[in-house]
């Protein structure tokens, strides 16, 4: 009787859902929630981790020239990279959508390759192309009688290189999301617009973009978070150089926390982006919710 009751209790939908999600909840708790709170705790300690110092580590960072350089670079890197990823993803999605459905699959597959390869590996391939002394790209340029480019040893080109690789890795994500969004727009809307005499641009601005607004917002939000927190591309290509001019929050936190052994300050650096991203997430998700409710 008791066992039967237990089965009945377990069979109720919310409970089944909870138990099925439990492994994921545990993983999130162990790998995200616990480290997050632990890093907050670490960020409130002194360098030797022997004394509680409150917000002193954060206040200390505000006075550091290199830290503000990292802040500027992270914002610049994230905005430029996400803009181009979104633009290229949008154009590529439209181009693929315009292909007859029979040929779309192979293009989708090929264009997803950069996103599927582990970034640390693909970035190593890029590093060979950019290598400071024996760059494969420079070898090609020299064959064409063009001066070699200091891909990784000058600030401008080093920033260009890490942004380029980030776009290469991340654009397929936008492509696949936008392609899915494009396919969900009813054909009737375009047909009706055509009957009304709308041209390509009018259809784009008055049908396609409004219908894709939510997915665009969410992909941009997701990409900003991931791009802000990027580590592997910078670590493999430049290690934050030259002269710290390509450091992002994550690579600088690694330098300060792990390489220099100042774990509390490293934790403070990595947590610095949290409020910025939290506010951004709140605004974007609120707009998405608002639009969904309107629909």
């Amino acid at each position: 009787m008791k066992i039967n009751n237990l089965f009945i209790w377990l069979k109720q939908k919310p409970r089944i859902a909870f138990f099925m999600c439990l492994p994921l909840i545990l993983m999130v708790a162990c790998l995200i929630i616990y480290p997050f709170f632990y890093s907050i705790f670490l960020a409130t300690l002194n360098k030797a981790e022997t004394k509680f110092v409150g917000f002193a580590n954060f206040l200390f960072l505000f006075k550091r020239e290199t830290f503000w350089l990292v802040v500027q670079q992270s914002i610049f890197f994230a905005l430029v990279a996400v803009f181009f990823k979104a633009l290229i993803g949008f154009i590529a999605a439209h181009s693929i959508n315009a292909i007859p459905s029979k040929g779309q699959r192979k293009w989708r597959g090929m264009l997803l390759i950069p996103w599927v390869i582990p970034p640390a590996l693909s970035t190593l391939g890029w590093w060979w192309l950019f290598e400071p002394t024996y760059s494969a790209l420079n070898w090609l340029l020299e064959k064409l009688s063009i001066d070699a480019i200091p891909w990784l040893s000058e600030t401008f080109w080093a920033r260009f290189s890490i942004i380029l690789v980030n776009i290469w890795v991340g654009a397929p994500f936008f492509l696949i999301m936008y392609l899915a969004a494009l396919k969900s727009i009813p054909e009737d809307l375009y047909e009706a617009a055509s009957i009304d005499g709308a041209n390509y641009w009018q259809k784009l601005f008055f049908i396609t973009l409004p219908m894709m607004k939510n997915i665009i917002s969410i992909t941009i939000l997701f990409s900003i978070i991931v791009t802000f927190a990027n580590f592997d591309i910078v670590r493999v290509l430049t290690r934050g150089g030259p002269i710290d001019t390509t450091h992002l929050f994550a690579t600088y936190a690694f330098r300060v926390g792990i390489e220099s052994g100042d774990i509390p300050l490293g934790a403070a650096v990595s947590l610095f982006m949290f409020p910025v991203l939290a506010v951004l997430s709140f605004i974007i998700l609120r707009n998405v919710r608002k639009r969904t409710n309107e629909v």
Binding site: P132, T133, Y134, S153
Partner: peptide, 21 residues
């Protein structure tokens, strides 16, 4: 010195010498 030294890693100088450059 070569201008690329600002982006060299720990193995770059070895390659530089071993290559004969």
């Amino acid at each position: 010195m070569p201008k690329s030294v600002y982006a060299w890693d720990d193995s770059s100088n070895n390659r530089w010498l071993i290559s004969g450059e």
